[in-house]
Design a protein around this nucleic acid. Structure first.
Length: 383
DNA sequence: GATCCACGGGAATACACGGATG
DNA sequence: CATCCGTGTATTCCCGTGGATC
C-alpha cells in the first residue's frame, strides 16, 4: 500500500467531521448491491430466469422502464448473484472446470454504452463470457465467429444481459437479435431499454418510475452511507424526491451536487438553499451521467472545459473558438465545433436559438448543458 | 500484412434574410 | 406577387490517416 492510499484511508476513517464521507455512495452511476426497493419486479425477473437454476436455459426477455427506475441496479444485482450461485454449485459438484458441466448457465452483463459498433457489441459479449482475453483490435469479424463457435462447442450455456439498448448512441434491440439469435440454443439474453416492448420480443418486465416514498427511502439510505450524520434534513430529501418525480438518477445527482457544493464551501450540512442549487445543476430532462462518462475521452474533456467557460449566451462558433484558443484541449476549432454539434445532437448539450448579433446569415444558437454538471465535474476531476 | 475504429480536418450543404427578377 | 439569387453564417457529413493489436 502506498503513501497516498494510507493517507486517504486515514482521512476517511477520521471523517466523522467531514460532510461527504464517500461520493461513490451518492453517485447515480453506482448501483447498490441489494435493490430491495424493487421487490415485485425482482421476483418477476427471477421467475423468468428460474429455469436456469435447474440447469435449463431461460427464454429471452426484456426489462424496460424510464430512466432512473432502477433497471440497471436490478439486473446487475440479480445477475451477479445468479452467476455467483452458478459458480458455487459448479465447484461443489465438480473439482474440474465447468467446461464439462452442463449445469447452471453463466450470467454475464454487458453495457451497450461502452460499445460503438456491432463488432464492439460482439466483442463485449465474448469478453464477458470468456475467461480468456478477447482481442479488440487486429482481428476480423470471422475471428469473433470462431470464438462464438468455440463457446457453443463446449456445451456451455449463458444468459447475457445487455443494458442501455435503444438509446440514441447505442444499438437497437434488433442488433442483439441479429448477433445472438443464431446461437439461441446456447446463449439466451435479457435486453434492457427504455422503450415499450415490441410485439415479438418475448416476456417483458416493466419497471415504472419510483413511488415518491420509495425514492425518499433510497435517498435516505444513500445519504446515510455517503454523508456524515445529520448532514441533511429529511425534509430536504423529500423535497428532492418530489422534484425528481420518481427518477432515482436525477434525485441522487441533485443530492450529490448539493453535497459537493456544501463541501466545497466548508459547510457542515446541506441547507435548503444548497439543496436547491444541487437540483439546479441537474437539468431536466437530461442525459444520464452514465452516458456522459461513456463518451470518448476527448469529448469528455471538451465538456469539462466547457463547464469552466462562462459562454452562456455565446454562439457555438464563439464557444468553440474560445475553447480552441485556450489551448488546453489541443484541438482545432473545426473539430471542437463538430464535437459540440455532435454532443447537442445526442442530447448531452442543447442548442437554443440565440439573439442574432448581425442581420446577416443564419441566426446562431448557444449551448446549454443537459447533464448533471456537478456530478460530472467531480467524477471527471477525480480520475 | 490485416483488422477495426478513433481521430481530426475540412468540404459540402442547409438556412435566413434582403433584394433582384420575371 | 412569387420565385430566385447572393451573401454570410450555421450545421452536417464524409473521408483519409494512424494507432494498436493480432
Amino acid at each position: 500500500m502506498n503513501i497516498e492510499d494510507r493517507v486517504a484511508r486515514r482521512r476517511r476513517s477520521n471523517g466523522g467531521l467531514r460532510l461527504v464521507r464517500e461520493y461513490d455512495a451518492l453517485s447515480p452511476a453506482a448501483h447498490v448491491r441489494d435493490p430491495s426497493s424493487r421487490g415485485a419486479a425482482f421476483e418477476e425477473l427471477l421467475d423468468h430466469l428460474e429455469p436456469a437454476l435447474g440447469g435449463g436455459l431461460p427464454p429471452t426477455g426484456y426489462v424496460w422502464g424510464p430512466k432512473g427506475a432502477g433497471k440497471s441496479a436490478l439486473v446487475t444485482a440479480l445477475f451477479a448473484e445468479l452467476d455467483r450461485v452458478g459458480r458455487e454449485a459448479t465447484s461443489s459438484i465438480h473439482t474440474t472446470t465447468r467446461v464439462e458441466d452442463a449445469g447452471i448457465p453463466a450470467f454475464a452483463y454487458v453495457d451497450a454504452r461502452a460499445t460503438r459498433s456491432e463488432f464492439g457489441l460482439r466483442h463485449a459479449i465474448l469478453d464477458a463470457l470468456l475467461d480468456e482475453r478477447v482481442p479488440k483490435q487486429g482481428v476480423g469479424d470471422d475471428h469473433l465467429d470462431e470464438l462464438f463457435d468455440r463457446f457453443v462447442d463446449t456445451d456451455r450455456t449463458a444468459v447475457v444481459a445487455i443494458d442501455h439498448l435503444g438509446e440514441p448512441e447505442t444499438h437497437p434491440i434488433a442488433m442483439v437479435e441479429a448477433v445472438l439469435g443464431p446461437l439461441d440454443d446456447s446463449i439466451s439474453w435479457i435486453a434492457i431499454g427504455r422503450t415499450p416492448p415490441e410485439a415479438d420480443c418475448g416476456a417483458s418486465v416493466h419497471l415504472p418510475a419510483y413511488q415518491q416514498y420509495v425514492l425518499v427511502d433510497i435517498l435516505t439510505s444513500r445519504a446515510s452511507q455517503g454523508l456524515s450524520r445529520h448532514a441533511i434534513d429529511h425534509e430536504e430529501l423529500r423535497r428532492i424526491a418530489g422534484w425528481a418525480e420518481g427518477d432515482a438518477h436525477d434525485a441522487l445527482a441533485a443530492l450529490f451536487g448539493g453535497a459537493l457544493l456544501a463541501s466545497e464551501a466548508d459547510e457542515r450540512a446541506i441547507d435548503s438553499e444548497t439543496a436547491i442549487r444541487g437540483m439546479e445543476a441537474v437539468p431536466r430532462p437530461n442525459a444520464s451521467i452514465g452516458r456522459v462518462l461513456a463518451l470518448p475521452e476527448n469529448r469528455q474533456r471538451v465538456l469539462r472545459r466547457l463547464l469552466d467557460f462562462d459562454t452562456v449566451g455565446e454562439s457555438v462558433r464563439v464557444t468553440a473558438e474560445a475553447l480552441s484558443r485556450d489551448g488546453a484541449l489541443d484541438l482545432s476549432t473545426a473539430t471542437i465545433t463538430r464535437f459540440l454539434y455532435e454532443l447537442a445532437e445526442m442530447g448531452v448539450l442543447e442548442r437554443v436559438t440565440a439573439e442574432r448579433t448581425t442581420e446577416l446569415g443564419r441566426p446562431p444558437s448557444r449551448l446549454e448543458p443537459r447533464f448533471p454538471t456537478l456530478v460530472f465535474r467531480r467524477t471527471f476531476d477525480a480520475v
